[in-house]
Design a protein around this nucleic acid. Structure first.
Lengths: 343, 343
DNA sequence: AACAATATTACAAATGTTTTCATTATTGGC
DNA sequence: GCCAATAATGAAAACATTTGTAATATTGTT
């Protein structure tokens, strides 16, 4: 009972139905205090009767905010990003915005073209994951004066404000923990680092922390596995088959650690008795894992929520605002790490 | 060197710079074959020089497609949805569209207002998770003649075309598997079912399958836990503390099963020797779990990709098209299920 | 009851495009 | 070189809004 006329209702149809001018209808939406309560009632009635829905596209060409934030991520199906996207989206919706989401699969050239697309859609702001982006992307955003936020990693001298954690520090934290336990025969398992500054920073932090105690990771123990339980498990199974086992395996994130733990469990190798395993991220489920995973907490939800506030702040406030925020990583020592076995 | 003039470049600025009319510039974008190669070159040069970016908002008010698809999900940070969203987004981007994403946290009233928002943004189509929605939402979409797709669950008599799996069948599959192994003392662990037709359908399938062999799940063994490892683990720990153990625990999804497995592992209860555990979903990592999880495969990636094609088909084709697709669930018998112990 | 002040509403221009139709350029055939 | 086709371009209207300004209606005051 809401489709009186043939075609989609526009503001003019509403105006006619309510016997007022289109401008009054518009004002009734945008500046309700400027229109008399009784006319507003008439208009609301007409709106309901015609099933009218405002057209943001038409508003947007008046320089009015589109009410959208572009979020460009490498992928959404990694626990870590999913959690962050969720809290980001909750917070952003709370503030009245909607997310335009795109994923580039760690391909920074695709990231550039997705950024262009966001710009075409006239998003009010753009949030990118990580610090490392092509110069093209950065230039484009700067030249269009697009409010931009770098999300997930933090660096004081990044090209745009960042909200995130310090991945290098996270790596250093876990490296120092493992070194502090006395481990000197250490393996590492990280994803391919190209196009992934988070991973390379973490790895650098780990290596530097180990170097402090004169320990380095031999080539053969630098395992590379994309973030998946399956690849991690088989990488560690291969390592076990090799025969020469390290006393600790430092993993680039918790998913890799889960894979490692499954491999060790299957082989009957005691953790942490025989091998220490650590993750980075503290994903949901890591604490409940058996044995409970030692890792570094990078609070994805906090980052997402803070980032949402930050980008909205950037888009809505006039002057320059400082929204950068460093959310520090925190070591979570649990049950998968212990001193190396003496033998 | 791309910001000659003061403010943002529009199509008129480009036209001036290229010494052609705005209409020619527009045509050069939309019907390049209608403009001479040499003028197109001039225009392209001007575009680059001014850093011009097309304004989709302005196009959209001409009834041109906005190039966006609204995707409304309960939450993105559940493995299952994350995976689906990822493949959906990949496929949709491939087809030239961008996703407007929103999450309602299993609150169907919020879903309604998010739907309205999508409509305001003049998305070309809307994809919703599950079959169950408020009548308001359904009416709204129908009345606005918005191409709509129901995603994730499949039902032949749904109000809109669906692409998804049969959750009832999935539940029945696993129920029959467990019953077939001989289990009669069976517990179930499912999330709260309100606003979640997937879960309730699965549970119904399980119960009906068990009923076929005259087995029913006692009240005390109907555990309720939101989809998280933590809650699942503690629910099962509570069950263990109770003392009266079932011989099988059927879980509403794999995450719950992981939690159950961790709890049993911690308590030193052998799986599947003493207790059979099953999941639903076959998430990434379930196969690699130790022991490898018996579950029902619901191919999230396939559903996401198929759904993307379907919604684009719905938005771009004129007449009525039949895009519904049932992606059948498949039982994956692995290492966590076995016959009940005789004692 | 008339006056000014204020509250409310309407008109018209503007926004950044696309598209139809008309006009101008270019081409091939002779 | 001229003519008819045909190709390429431009002018102007249209799209669904918002907003500044002008016009009208409603008050309170005396």
């Amino acid at each position: 009972m809401a489709d009186k006329s043939k075609r989609k209702a526009d503001i003019i149809a509403v105006a006619k139905a309510a016997r007022v001018s289109p401008s009054t209808v518009s004002r009734s939406f945008n500046h309700p205090d400027l229109v008399k309560a009784t006319t507003r009632k008439k208009i609301d009635a007409a709106v309901r009767r015609l099933g009218y829905i405002r057209n943001r596209a038409a508003q947007t060409i008046h320089g009015i905010r589109s009410g959208t934030i572009g979020l460009i991520v490498p992928t959404v199906d990694q626990a870590i990003f999913a959690e962050m996207i969720q809290s980001f989206s909750e917070a952003v919706e709370e503030l009245g915005f909607t997310i335009l989401l795109a994923s580039h699969g760690f391909n920074l050239d695709r990231e550039y073209s997705l950024t262009r697309k966001m710009l075409e859609h006239r998003v009010d702001g753009v949030a990118l994951i990580g610090i490392e982006h092509t110069q093209d992307t950065l230039d484009l955003l700067a030249q269009q004066e697009m409010p931009t936020l770098l999300l997930w990693s933090f660096s004081p001298n990044a090209p745009f404000p960042c909200v995130g954690s310090d991945n290098y520090a996270a790596g250093a934290l876990i490296g120092r923990h493992v070194a502090g336990l006395g481990h000197r025969r250490v393996a590492a398992m990280f994803p391919p680092v190209e196009g992934n500054d988070r991973a390379s920073l973490r790895f650098a932090g780990v290596k530097d922390a180990l170097a402090e105690v004169g320990c380095s990771i031999p080539e053969a123990w630098q395992l590379v596995a994309p973030y998946s339980v399956a690849t991690a498990k088989s990488a560690v199974e291969a390592l076990i088959a090799e025969g020469d086992m390290p006393t600790a395996i430092i993993c680039g994130n918790d998913v890799l650690a889960w894979g490692a733990l499954h491999a060790l469990n299957r082989a009957g190798i005691d953790v942490p008795g025989r091998v220490t395993v650590t993750g980075i991220g503290d994903f949901k489920g890591s604490k409940e894992f058996e044995p409970s995973l030692s890792t570094v907490r990078i609070p994805a939800r906090t980052i997402g929520a803070r980032a949402a506030e930050a980008i909205v702040e950037l888009t809505t406030s006039e002057g320059v605002v400082d929204v950068a925020a460093l959310i520090p990583p925190e070591i979570m020592v649990r049950a998968t790490s212990g001193p190396p076995r003496e033998d």
